[in-house]
Amino acid sequence: MAARRKARRRRKARGRAVPSGGGLLLGLLVLAVFWSRIWVYVVVLAAVAAVGGLGWWLWRTDRLVRGRDREWRRQDAVAAGRRTLAEVDGMTGTEFEDLVAALCRRDGCAEVRRVGGAGDQGADVVGRLPDGRTMVVQCKRYAPSAVIASREVRDLLGSKVHFGMDVAVFVTTTRFSRQAMDVVLKNGVIAVNRDLLGSWNSGASLPSLMGVNGSGQGDATHRARWRTTYGRQKRRRPGRPLRDGPDAV
């Protein structure tokens, strides 16, 4: 009995089976009969599929481009972090300005451009901080044994007024004199000395450096170590300026 039931089920299944090409022929026949009514829907469906495919391709391309850009920025940040201050000391003034501009861009600053050169009005880099405020940057690549004088900070304040900027930033490879720090604190200048520049170059962000601005340049022990490491600044005759220019060391 069981064998007979299995045989009947197989015969019914064969009776219901559609030939391999029957479904396709039936679909084409229905399409041909009702084409005048459904062609609009078919065209719309094809258009939607085409637009969807194009959108997916654009999305995928954008993801790939953004991914390559992020990887390039990550590698550039790693390379910058490995750059030593000794290498920075060996840069020309223009290269140092380019480095400062690159660090600003790395930290999310916008519209950053280098303006240093003849007639720069004391400004080397201008841009916009991540919070939207405009900034003007003065870059001084001096020998570590040198000291930034107060008049140089006042020159930067003049540039801030000239360019109509919100924030003034002074970046140097050395330290600020006591009188220069007084000008910094009284006028809200962001002073990035050699120590802070090392932190910035190694990955600290510019906004984080602004948070510790004016906190000092170390105690007497730190200053003694500084003089031991870099030597004591040679005394200058009153009114004689420090060496200033692209190749000043």
Rank of each mutant, 00 (worst) to 15 (best):
D247H: 12
G15H: 08
P130D: 14
S145Q: 12
A123N: 04
A49Q: 05
A101C: 10
M165Y: 10
V137Q: 09
Y230S: 07
F170P: 00
R106E: 14
G52L: 05
K160Q: 15
I148L: 12
V125D: 14
V88Q: 03
V153T: 09
G164S: 15
G55H: 01
L26Q: 07
S177I: 03
S215E: 14
V147R: 15
R10V: 02
V100M: 13
D182M: 08
K140P: 01
A2L: 06
E71Y: 05
G203M: 06
A32V: 06
R151N: 08
A32L: 07
R5E: 08
W56C: 02
A3K: 11
D124G: 12
G239A: 07
G67M: 02
V169S: 11
T172R: 08
S208W: 11
G158S: 15
L29Y: 05
V189Y: 06
W39S: 07
A80Y: 03
L196P: 00
W35T: 00
A50D: 02
L24R: 09
Q121A: 15
G231F: 11
N201Q: 13
G132F: 15
P246C: 05
V78Q: 04
A224M: 08
G23Y: 03
F170G: 05
V147I: 14
G15T: 03
A3V: 05
A191W: 03
Q121M: 15
L206I: 13
L197W: 04
Q217D: 10
V147P: 01
L85C: 00
V100K: 09
N213I: 01
K186H: 11
G164V: 11
V189E: 04
R175L: 09
G239Y: 08
L99T: 08
Q179P: 00
M91L: 12
S199P: 00
V33I: 11
T174Q: 09
A143H: 15
